[in-house]
Simulated assay, not measured.
Amino acid sequence: MYKKLVGATLALILSGCAQVPVEKQDARDPLQSLNRPLYDFNMDVLDAYILRPAAKGYIAITPAPVRSSLVNFTTNLAAPTDAVNAALQAKPGDAGVNVARFLVNTTVGIFGLFDVAKTLGLEHKDEDFGQTLGVWGVGDGAYLMIPGYGPSTARNLTGDVVDNVVLPEIALSTPQTILVFALRAVEARASLMSQEKLLNESLDPYIFLKDVYFQRQLYELHDGNPPVEEEPEEFDEDFLENL
């Protein structure tokens, strides 16, 4: 469940999450019989014994300014990928902003450790290849729970492979790519620490996480203005932006 940091969204009605969920066939999740055991494995084994302890240790020994610089560094590394995807989505303005951010932060910002571009009004434009495929009309495909990775869909898994493996490999070695991925994963899990109560207190965490995931994907695909059939109540934005 630890993808790169993304913009927040409005989602789920909390009162609805507090009710006993009714198990029914979900067309988005035809592989639920496989996904649920994988979710349990991710949460009860990998997260409980590896990722959460690593995140707690990371918080304990890493000063906040250092954590901020690491986030800036990994975000800056993704700027060229963001720019390529923005261009593929016919967003030349966003592509230009990401290129400018990369140039400014890599130089003046000392390899991206400091987000100087933001102080100049160049806000990060987060775009990925999963969104690009969505803009091109490719559907979500089946919901997937990936061991050690978390929720995804057939479309977004393809996009993540392109964004996190194919494109970075052009500039980074395999060990460097793995290190960057690990930094992002631990930081994202650390950021979720204060929000995990929402998941733990839901009566069916699997359904809760799946619904939040699809709401977030819809938010990203429509650049923060998804079509709304019913007016949702406010949901905790920090949880969504660090999922």
Rank of each mutant, 00 (worst) to 15 (best):
E231P: 07
Y206C: 01
T62M: 02
G134R: 05
Q215A: 15
A185H: 00
R216C: 07
P205G: 04
L157C: 01
V97E: 07
N105L: 05
L167T: 00
F73S: 12
P21S: 01
V186Y: 04
H124W: 10
K118G: 15
S152D: 01
S191E: 07
K210Q: 13
Q215S: 15
V108Q: 10
S15V: 11
P227E: 08
Q25T: 15
L192I: 03
I59E: 13
K197D: 09
N98F: 14
P232G: 04
S202M: 00
L133N: 03
P168H: 00
Q195T: 02
D126P: 09
A8H: 07
V6L: 03
V6P: 00
N225W: 13
A190D: 02
D238C: 10
L192A: 05
A90H: 15
A100V: 10
P37L: 02
A78R: 14
F214P: 02
V180P: 00
R36F: 03
A60G: 06
K125V: 08
R155W: 01
P147D: 04
I178S: 00
F181L: 05
D126L: 12
L133D: 04
P80A: 09
R101K: 13
Y58P: 07
L51K: 10
E237W: 09
L240K: 12
F114G: 07
D128M: 07
V228A: 10
I59Q: 15
A188G: 13
Q89C: 14
F129W: 09
A8Q: 08
A188M: 10
F111D: 11
P151Q: 00
V186I: 13
M145Q: 11
F102H: 10
L51T: 15
D128N: 11
F239D: 11
D126C: 12
N164V: 01
F102I: 12
P53F: 00
A83Q: 12
D160F: 06
P175Y: 00
Y58C: 09
P53S: 02
E123N: 15
Q195S: 01
E241Y: 14
R189I: 00
V212A: 14
D128G: 05
N156W: 03
A185N: 00
Q195N: 01
L113W: 11
G141P: 03
L167F: 00
V66R: 08
A86Q: 11
R189F: 00
L221Q: 10
V138K: 07
L122F: 09
D40W: 10
K4W: 10
E230P: 02
I61Q: 06
G130P: 04
L12I: 05
L14T: 11
G7A: 06
D204G: 03
M193P: 02
V162M: 07
L209M: 15
M193S: 12
I170G: 02
A188I: 05
K3N: 14
A64F: 13
V104F: 08
F114V: 14
A185S: 03
T132A: 13
D115W: 02
A55R: 01
D236S: 14
G130W: 05
C17Q: 14
T174Y: 10
Q217S: 11
Y219F: 09
V166A: 02
G139K: 12
E201W: 06
G57N: 05
Q89W: 09
L192D: 06
D211Y: 09
